[in-house]
Every structure is written in structure tokens, then in C-alpha cells.
Amino acid sequence: MSFIKTTEQASNYNHLEKMTVKELLTNINVEDKSVPYAVEKAIPAIENLVNSIVYRMKKGGRLFYIGAGTSGRLGIVDASECPPTFGVSHNLVIGIIAGGDSAIRKAVEFAEDSTTQCWKDLQKFNINKNDSVIGIAASGTTPYVISGIQKCNENSILTGCITCNEGSPLSKVAQYPIEIIVGPEFVTGSSRMKAGTAQKLVLNMISTSIMIQLGKVKGNKMVDMQLTNNKLVDRGTKMLMDELNISEEKANELLLKYKNVRNAINNYTNGNR
């Protein structure tokens, strides 16, 4: 089958400039509703990738996201949320974007076209065989990402990808390809829309399920979250009240003493009250 970029196909809608605001919002919403169904079809592929990553992370491996533009930014967002949410090191899940950190806010011209820079960026982290790398590219054709995945394969590093085109060059080189086929965008070619939403949903699924498998959730609670603001202190206090059946005052005292919901629970149940 020849490779066709459905993400670049003409929108199902025309004369957008003639639509009212309500029509624009309604039609965008109609398109967005299709994304979770597209993701659902890829659950078996996501499951296979997650299981393989968990196996390596339990042996000390790390997870890397590589991408350019919107895809790279989404990877960085997901990676940056893991430490505060699950209490893990900033070096456990790492997002890398073509063009470096400055590209997070402002596009770096032609950074995504390099076929050598991605591997150099990964080597800065002393990447090794226990690590896993997921290439994120809606088009599935980004040279920065494809070349990075190829070099990882050559060095016996597990590779996966998230793309929104079927049979893309990226899917063909990744060991565990995930294809979320969302079809044409509302604004033709604007893959920050449905494709970006699809990638975000899949990244949520991957990182959350990995962290649960690594024991970073108890029941349904983020017991290892970092207490970085008053909202999270309040959330942690309520967790302890529910888990230990104690007063708000006692829960807050324990939380501030042990700096962590899990530590507070363990110490309280062990008699350190």
C-alpha cells in the first residue's frame, strides 16, 4: 500500500471563514469526538509497548520521548508531569525536542530536518540498552525522529512511535508502532488539532499505566505526588483522612512531617504517630 498522509488531506469542511463562531466551535467539536474512538482501536498496540517498557524500567531503564514541534512539546509536557504526579526522578521520563529547549516556546527553523542531531541529543543522557524511546510525529515522516529511532534500533534500544498516518516511514522503523488514524484536520494540515489530541491521549495512557505498574499509585490515589503547592497539600491531607480515618488536623500534621502521603501512611500504620 502506498503511503498517504491523511493528516494532510483536505478538510471535510470548506469556507471556514464564512462560518459563525458557533458553527466553528460545533464543527471542531464534532471532529474532536472521533479521536477517542481512533485511540481505542490502537489499545492492543499501546498495551504491547507499555508491557515492554515496564519490563525494562523495572530493571533500571528510563523512558525517552523524542519529537519536533507540537509532537515534541507534547512529549515534554507528559515527561514533566511525571515527577510532581508520581514522585519520580526528573531523569526517569525525559522529553527531547528538536532544536532544544528553546523550541518549546518558539519554532527552530529546520531543526526537525536533521538526520544526525537526535542521536547526539540522546547520547547526552548516556542512553543504554535498558532504556526505551518513543518517537512522536503526527506525519510519521519527521527526519529528526526517524533517524533517532533508527540509531536506537542499531544500539539494541527498545523503540516505539506514535503517529497519525497509516504505514508511515516512522511506523516501519519503530519496533512497537502506534498508529492513531484521525483523518483530515478541521483546518487542513493543522495536526496540532485532532492529531495532537490523539497523541496527548496516548501519552497519558502510556505514562499513567507505566507508573501504576511501577507501584506509584495506591488504590486510585497519587500517594507519591510531590507537595509543590497548597492545592496538593490539601489533596494529600484528604487522602490521609480517608485512608487512615483521622482528623484533618492530624492528617495535615502527618503529611507535613513525612513530606509524602505514602510515607505518612506507612509510618502511621507502623505506630509512628
Rank of each mutant, 00 (worst) to 15 (best):
K5L: 11
E8S: 15
Q9W: 04
Q9M: 15
A10T: 12
A10P: 15
N12I: 03
N14P: 00
H15C: 01
L16V: 11
E17S: 12
T20E: 05
E23Q: 15
L24P: 03
L25Y: 08
N27T: 14
N27A: 11
N27H: 13
N29M: 04
V30W: 02
V30R: 11
D32Q: 09
Y37K: 13
A38P: 00
V39H: 07
I43C: 01
E47Q: 13
E47I: 10
V50R: 01
N51E: 14
R56D: 09
M57L: 13
M57K: 03
G60R: 06
G61T: 01
R62Y: 10
L63K: 08
Y65M: 10
I66Y: 02
A68K: 06
G69S: 09
G69H: 10
L74S: 00
G75V: 10
I76Y: 02
I76K: 12
P84N: 10
T85F: 06
H90D: 13
N91L: 12
V93S: 00
I94V: 15
G95C: 12
I97A: 09
G100H: 11
D101K: 14
S102W: 00
S102G: 06
A103V: 03
R105E: 02
V108Y: 00
D113P: 06
T116E: 14
C118E: 08
W119E: 03
K124R: 14
F125K: 00
I127L: 06
N128K: 07
N128Q: 05
N130M: 13
N130S: 12
V133T: 05
I134M: 09
I134G: 06
A138K: 04
S139Y: 07
T141F: 02
P143V: 08
Y144F: 15
S147C: 07
I149W: 11
Q150L: 14
Q150I: 15
C152D: 08
C152V: 09
N153S: 06
N153T: 12
N155W: 09
I157F: 07
L158Y: 05
T159F: 07
G160Y: 03
C164N: 15
N165G: 05
P169T: 10
L170K: 08
S171T: 12
K172N: 13
Q175M: 13
P177I: 08
E179R: 09
E179W: 00
V182Y: 07
V182T: 15
F186T: 09
V187K: 03
M193F: 10
K194V: 11
K194A: 07
A195W: 06
T197F: 11
T197N: 03
T197V: 08
V202N: 03
L203A: 12
S207I: 10
T208M: 07
I210S: 08
M211R: 02
M211V: 07
L214N: 09
N220C: 02
K221T: 09
M222C: 05
M222R: 04
V223M: 08
V223T: 15
M225K: 06
M225D: 03
L227Q: 10
L227Y: 02
N229V: 04
N229H: 04
N229R: 01
N230D: 15
L232T: 04
T237C: 15
K238H: 06
K238F: 08
K238R: 15
K238V: 13
L244W: 10
S247G: 14
E248A: 14
E248L: 05
E249H: 09
K250V: 12
E253A: 05
L256T: 04
V261R: 01
R262A: 13
A264C: 04
A264M: 01
I265T: 01
I265E: 00
N266T: 12
N270R: 10
N272C: 00
